[in-house]
Design a protein around this nucleic acid. Structure first.
Lengths: 229, 229
DNA sequence: ATCCCTTTGTGAACCGACGCACAAAGTCGT
DNA sequence: ACGACTTTGTGCGTCGGTTCACAAAGGGAT
């Protein structure tokens, strides 16, 4: 298998993609602290992963990195940013400006790199017209127009569960193919559309499961019957 | 392999655990609509998974379900709830009452089943003393006392990144072993502690990656060189 | 220029998860 | 009471991801 300069297999494993933002964050921290190069071992520790995994992940992007030395921090930041598509600017619309929507609008975290909140939309006439985080809340009737006018390509759904599917359909009809969903429903979408789901309640339930097991194990033996409850 | 009544292998795959809350939600919806029994096919559709996977998941809890008929909705709700530890009440403390912390405190979603927000804590004297969602915000100095007094076993960290690790350490020292972290940092914890991470910025970056690929594919051919950027 | 030391990039074994496809098991109608 | 039909529970092949361990590649010292 011979490779030209950097053919960079179009086919980065999903698990790797999910970790790249982690590496990027660690690298940005190092760059700010003036670190010039970093070994896979140190970067892996900073990102909370195993160093072999880190190296394999990075090898999917190309062969950046110098044997015996490590990786150039700045260069790697650039390469990962480019791979993730953060060298361009993404216009994000937040649909649903309740408590969560407001929190997201004010969250500095994603404005920082590549993402820009371009619109806030809600159905409640009480909220429409308010200024939040320097943006005017627009009426949901404007959804399609706003998406097209501002070039929105990523939509964050922070609506009540009952409204989510309908709004999702409209957003997709308006041409959006990337959705971050906070509503506790399973959205049904064509498979050309990417949906990522964030669900607080599910996370808590998973924690509760493990927590229960820990306390079970303390009170009874590891092989104790479970029907005591 | 013979099994007594319901030995229920202590050893449910992590992937299964992560889906149980999904099934539970779908089942609760059905129960409210008065559905008495459901087939794996229908439940799988409602939960957005493949029916074989659903059956295998449920088989890890025991052999509930009747061939030729399906699963009794109420019974399955109970079994999954019990397995997840939702038949008991979990006291949750929210540490950090900024925009996000406030949104979480007001989020009805997790109060509903098994979880109860038992405390809100913050370091900002401006915020301490406020009433949010019927709870008084307490000073972070009270952290250890509050955790012990109220029997808090799950902590939600919604603090700025800079404060997260220190607070995490304190929370663990106070005996908590389950943490839901919203701060964009990699927490280092002993492996007796479970940390689940929710990171908006990472989710957006993953979406951006796939979005970029879609648009790349549209403008150039599928096998086009990538260095045009 | 050569040797030694460090660190990358990856082949290969391993592990968990997924989905197909089917036998076992139970229901319902006659 | 029996047969046809439905739906579960699972054995098994497959696949993606993780980890180990090491050869290849470079840097720096002598």
């Amino acid at each position: 298998m011979m490779r030209q300069s950097q053919p960079r297999d179009r086919g980065i494993p999903e698990a790797t993609v999910a970790r790249l933002p982690l590496y990027l964050r660690a690298l940005n921290g190092m760059a700010e602290r003036g670190v010039a190069t970093v070994s896979s071992e140190d970067l892996a520790t900073a990102a909370g992963v195993n160093s072999a995994k880190l190296r394999k992940d990075l090898s999917h992007l190309g062969s950046y990195g110098t044997r015996g030395v490590g990786y150039d921090v700045e260069y790697l930041v650039y390469q990962i940013s480019r791979e993730l598509g953060l060298t361009q600017d993404w216009a994000v619309a937040i649909v649903g400006v309740g408590n969560l929507g407001r929190a997201l609008a004010n969250y500095g975290g994603f404005v920082s790199r590549g993402f820009r909140v371009a619109a806030l939309l809600d159905a409640d006439p009480e909220i429409v017209g308010d200024d939040i985080a320097g943006l005017n809340v627009e009426h949901i009737d404007e959804l399609e127009a706003v998406i097209k006018r501002r070039g929105v390509s990523i939509v964050v759904l922070a609506t009540p569960a009952a409204a989510a599917q309908e709004l999702c359909d409209r957003v997709i009809a308006a041409g959006v193919t990337s959705i971050l969903n906070f509503a506790p429903v399973v959205l049904s979408v064509p498979d050309t559309v990417d949906v990522r789901k964030v669900d607080l309640s599910i996370e808590l339930q998973i924690l509760a499961f493990h927590e229960q097991r820990k306390t079970d194990r303390m009170s009874g033996g590891p092989l104790m019957a479970v029907d005591s409850q």
